[in-house]
Design a protein around this nucleic acid. Structure first.
Length: 113
RNA sequence: UAAGAUAACUGGAUGAUUACGCCACUUGUGGUGAGGAAAGUCCGAGCACCAUAGAGCAAACACUCUUGAUAACGUCAAGCAAUGGUGACAUUAGGAAAAGGGCAACAGAAAUAGACUGCCAACUGACAGCUUAGCUGUAAAGGGCACAGGUGGAAAAGUGGAGUAAAAGCCCACUCAUUAGUAUGGUGACAUACUUCUGCUGUAAACUCAGUGUGGUGCAAGAUGUGGGGCAUAAGAGUUGCUCGCUCGCUCCCAAAAUCGCUUGAUUAUGUUGGCAACAGCAUAACUAGAUAGAUGAUCAUCUUAAAUGACAGAACUCGGCUUAUAGGUUAUCUUAGGGC
RNA sequence: GGAAGCGUAUCGAAGUGGUCGCACCGAGCCGCACUCGAAAUGCGGUUGUCGGAGAAAUCCGGCACGUGGGUUCGAAUCCCACCGCUUCCG
């Protein structure tokens, strides 16, 4: 389940997370997170033009989204989260991204239960 | 068999579990969901607003063999000419240099006119000799020539003859290029033949000239709601400048989002008729993404296959082109070379 | 999605058809002078790459102005197509 209510959409929302939130990094990804008043977790994914053309960017986005789905119910619902792909993410496999997501969420210590 | 040329096609299929966008309704099911280039944004249109886009001059930009096709085009088709290739074929911004100036480094005597080396004693003058109205000889001062030399991308047509003091398209024959005309063929570009004129450096993809065409801005156009602010009857605005003309003159600006614009259209598929073709007409059938942090992933199974885990690559208002990228595979026609019958 | 601009030695930056690109100029780098030593200052030198010659210093030749074509006798410069980078428009 990763419908629109779980997504960060507006530019100001992203800016808020960057400004207020804290960050954790790994080889392929960077995780920003900040507390919010929403009842649901909201996840944003940012993939810059440096990674490549539209096809590769879309692929990275889809993979990250797929990786996050199993954790949606486990993350503390009072947080907003932004994943940023580094340049190396364009060549990383699905399994590597899964490992990175798991590592980052534990390191950030925002999982509940 | 090898090496090529040209024109096309393909760019895996089916199913399961789970996940996403849109649509429908019975609200948890069903339907549907990227390309040949969706790309680059290089042209042409639709559409929207500015006057239902007006006139003149200027500027700027684009185009330039012919005939046709098209809504239109700088695109396409069939040809013509030139160039390249043994050939199948390919390429070409392919008007004018005799309207006008501009530029042409270095080399070379000289670069669009000229004489360095050279050739010449016919002419003017000089000198010498002699049989003295003159003749013969010497010398390149004046003068004549542009044949030969070498330089260069380019030196003013090539070969042969005639001619001369020496020479030269100065003249003649043939050839080459070129101007104009006539005839034949072709819608035409043009081709062939004959007559005739001329023998002219190159560059217009630097300026220019001739002809033709172009109003501007782009869906972030624009329309409708919401909130806030300004102006107070003429300043101004109408998107290159000037002149004219017309219109608006209560409308203008800012903010954040929403809805519309947003997909049935110069559409697609099949057949048929006309045309060498581009393409057009007719008939039948079909409806095929519409997002807005922006939708196709993950894990398998089976099949086709040499292989498919593996090419280039992701719609953003919509069409017609152009250009560029593209693994592997397939088809058709043709060319050259070698071999066999 | 749309609209503009820029690519020249290690860096910045002139050069807009002509003597090999001795690539003006500035910074940097190297050497020398000055100094006990350094800085500053002054003077001189300095593009890369490929190939060849040489014991070495060094010398000679080719290619290269983002890349590839074209026009021209000749292109960093003119034309066309790509590649990369930057900026603007809600």
């Amino acid at each position: 389940m990763f419908s629109k209510e779980y997504r960060l959409k507006k530019k100001y929302q992203f800016n808020y997370v960057y400004r207020v939130g804290r960050s954790v990094g790994s080889t392929n990804l960077v995780l920003y997170f900040s507390p919010s008043k929403n009842k649901n977790v909201k996840v944003g994914i940012s993939v810059s033009k440096k990674l490549g053309h539209a096809v590769t960017r879309n692929l990275v986005k889809r993979r990250i989204r797929e990786c996050v789905i199993p954790y949606l119910q486990k993350i503390n619902p009072n947080f907003n989260v932004v994943f940023i792909a580094k340049t190396s993410a364009a060549e990383a496999s699905f399994a590597e991204l899964q490992k990175d997501v798991n590592y980052l969420l534990k390191k950030a210590n925002i999982l509940c239960g």
